[in-house]
Simulated assay, not measured.
Amino acid sequence: MGQQKITTFLWFNNQAEEAVELYTSVFDDARVIDIQRYGEAGPGPVDSVMTITFELPGQRFIALNGGPEFSFTEAISLSVDCADQEEVDTLWAKLTEGGGEEGPCGWLKDRFGLSWQIVPRALHELIGDPDKAKASRVMSAMLGMKKIEIQGLLDAAAAG
């Protein structure tokens, strides 16, 4: 892979290592690329992890142990395209484990406060249906869900 021009930078208080360990364990084809440590100039303790560059399926990120000044909000989230319900269920369980929070419409926060959208491909197909009534029923069904259940979407699509 060539150099990625734009990289998402994630600011953690002091949990960058723990977060990267979780994220790289959740996704196939994930890996740590580089670890940079604080030197004598600080501001972190000498030899403690400053940044970790890592990759989740084809996308590069940098996690920073930057201190408590900033925290994540839902204004930005990582959206994951899921092939099927099994993938939705697996990612949902792993990312909410250990203190994560379920949100509405396929959104969740992991235990570090980072927001994710765990979205089955079927949702995009169904809400994009040219039959506007069918698409509206699917959207209404999705709005009532936390983790998205594909069968519930299919049932709503067929209800007309």
Rank of each mutant, 00 (worst) to 15 (best):
F70V: 09
E17N: 07
E102R: 05
V32D: 03
G152D: 11
I150E: 15
P68T: 04
D81R: 13
D29N: 14
M50E: 05
Y23M: 10
P68Q: 02
G39Y: 01
G39F: 01
E87S: 08
E18M: 04
E40M: 05
Y38F: 12
F27G: 15
S79M: 13
A122V: 09
I148L: 14
A63I: 03
C105H: 09
R111E: 09
E102Q: 11
K147W: 03
G2E: 13
E86M: 00
T73P: 11
A19C: 06
K147T: 12
E55N: 04
W107C: 15
G44D: 02
R111W: 00
D34K: 08
L78M: 13
N13G: 01
E101H: 07
G160M: 03
T53G: 13
R37A: 07
T8D: 10
E149R: 02
F61D: 08
A75P: 08
E125L: 13
F61W: 08
R31F: 01
D129T: 04
G106L: 04
A83W: 00
D34E: 08
V32C: 11
D29S: 12
S48V: 06
P130N: 10
A30R: 10
G100L: 03
M50K: 10
M1S: 14
R31W: 00
F72L: 09
T96M: 02
K134T: 15
G2S: 09
I127L: 09
R31Q: 14
V138H: 06
K132E: 13
L126V: 05
T73C: 10
W11P: 01
F12R: 01
V46H: 10
W92H: 07
E101W: 00
E40H: 04
I76R: 04
G39C: 04
Y38K: 02
S140L: 03
S71E: 10
L56T: 07
G160T: 06
E69D: 14
D155F: 00
V138K: 07
D89Q: 08
Q36R: 11
T96R: 03
K132R: 11
P45Y: 00
L154C: 07
S71N: 07
A63G: 11
R137T: 13
T7Q: 06
L123S: 12
A75E: 10
G44P: 05
I35H: 12
S25E: 13
M1P: 13
G100A: 05
E101K: 12
E18V: 12
Q3A: 04
